[in-house]
Design a protein around this nucleic acid. Structure first.
Lengths: 212, 212
DNA sequence: GCGAAACTTTTACCGAGTCAAACTTTGAGC
DNA sequence: GCTCAAAGTTTGACTCGGTAAAAGTTTCGC
C-alpha cells in the first residue's frame, strides 16, 4: 500500500480503464447489446484480460458491490452500543438519502444507470444475487453476536428486505420518469415505513378486508 | 382440456420425457456436468426441441415453479375472511410440513435434489429469481386489495422472506446430513418463529448487546 | 384424403467463458 | 545495469448455452 509499485499501479489503471470503457458503452447502448470482445477492443486490451479483472460480464457494470457490502456490514457490526441493527440501518438509509448517495436509489448513478440495470435480465439477476450476499453478511454478523442461527437468518432477511425494497421503490419511480427531487423528498417517509414494518411487524395487514 | 387430442398428449409426453431424463442425469452427475445436447440425445430428441419446451437449461430442473407460484398466490388471495395473509401463509407452511410436501424443505424431493440445487450457482440463481417472482405475485395481490403500492411491496417481501428462510433452513440441514425426521419435527417451531417475527417485528433484536 | 397448421429437425450461427501455451513486462538480486 | 524468474498479457482454439431460419414431418379440420 505504501509503495504500490509500477506493476500494481498499472493493474489498477487497466482495471479502471476497462470498467470505464465498459460502463460508457453500456450506458450508450444497453448491456446486452455490447459484447465483451467489443469492450476489450475499445479498451485496447484482449478479451482474456477483461475476464482476468472481471470474472463475469455483469461485474463490469456492478463493480461497486464490494464497497456496498462492506459498508452495510460495518453499519450493523460497528453500530453504537444500545442501537439495534434495525435502527442502525434505518439511520444509515436516511443518511445515504440526505447525502445524495446513488445507493439511496433516489439519485441516478449517472444518467441511464438504472435504465441499463433494469433492462437487462442478466444484470438484474446478478443484482439480486448481490442483495442475497448482503443478507448473508448480516446473518453472519448477527449469528456471531447472538449464536442463534435461524433467528439471525430471519432478522437478516427482514432487514435486507427493507433496504432492497426501499431502494427498488425509488429506482422504479426514477426509471418511470418521476422527478428525482420529488422522489427524494418522499423517500424519507418510505424509509421509515419500511423499517417500522420490520421493527413492529406487519400485524394483521391488510386491515379492513371484507368490511372489518 | 376435455379432449386433449393426440397432438397435445404427445406434447405433454415429450415434455415429461425430457424433464425426467434431464432430472435423472442431473441427480446422477450434477447440473453443470450435463450438457443440453446430452439430454437431447438421451431423450431421443433434438437440442432445439429441448429449448422449445424449456427456454433455459435451469427450467429443466426447476419445472415445478409455476405450480408453487400459483399455490402460494392462491393461499394469499383466496384466504378465508378474517385471516391475514401472514396467518394464511403460516398455516399453509404448517400444512405443507405435516403433509410431507417437498416444498416444506424438510423432505428430500427425491434423493439428491437439494444437492443438485445447492451445488450449482446457475440453479441457485434461478431459484432465487423464482422466489422474487413469488414476492411480486404477493405484491400484486396485496396492492390490488389495498391500493397501497409500497406497503404491499414491503409486506410481500417480508412474507416471502419468511417462506424462503424457513425453507432454506430446512434444506440446509438436510444437505448437511441432518436426519430428515428430526429436521421435520423441529420445523414446526421454526415456522412459528419466522412468522412471529414478520407479524410482530424484530423489535430491538438482538437484546443484551453490551450488557443491556 | 387433402391442405393448413403445429411441431420437430437440421444447419448455421453468436457470445460468454475456459484453457494452455507463447510472449512481454516488471522487479529483485547480484 | 544486467539477468532471470515471476507476474501479467495475448493468442488461438475450444466448449456450451442459446437463437434463427428453413426444411421436413405429423396431426387435425374439413
Amino acid at each position: 500500500m505504501a509503495d504500490p509499485g509500477l506493476r500494481e499501479r498499472k493493474k489498477q489503471a487497466t482495471r479502471l480503464l476497462i470498467s470505464n470503457v465498459a460502463t460508457g458503452l453500456f450506458i450508450q447502448r444497453g448491456f446486452e447489446e455490447v459484447t465483451v470482445a467489443e469492450i476489450a477492443e475499445a479498451a485496447g486490451v484482449s478479451k482474456m484480460t477483461v475476464f482476468n479483472y472481471f470474472p463475469r460480464k455483469e461485474d463490469l457494470f456492478l463493480d461497486r458491490h464490494a464497497d456496498r457490502l462492506a459498508e452495510l456490514t460495518s453499519v450493523v457490526r460497528d453500530r453504537p452500543a444500545g442501537v439495534s441493527p434495525c435502527e442502525a440501518l434505518r439511520r444509515h438509509q436516511h443518511a445515504l438519502l440526505s447525502s445524495g448517495h446513488p445507493l439511496s436509489g433516489a439519485i441516478a448513478g449517472g444518467p441511464g444507470f438504472w435504465w441499463v440495470l433494469t433492462s437487462s435480465p442478466a444484470l438484474m439477476a446478478r443484482w439480486y444475487e448481490q442483495e442475497r450476499e448482503i443478507a448473508e453478511a448480516f446473518t453472519s454478523v448477527l449469528a456471531e453476536e447472538t449464536g442463534d442461527a435461524f433467528r439471525s437468518r430471519m432478522v437478516a432477511g427482514l432487514l435486507t428486505t427493507a433496504i432492497t425494497t426501499v431502494f427498488a421503490h425509488a429506482m422504479g419511480r426514477i426509471v418511470a420518469g418521476d422527478d428525482a427531487e420529488v422522489v427524494r423528498q418522499e423517500q424519507v417517509a418510505v424509509i421509515d415505513q419500511a423499517f417500522d414494518l420490520v421493527e413492529h411487524g406487519v400485524g394483521e395487514f391488510p386491515q379492513g378486508r371484507y368490511g372489518r
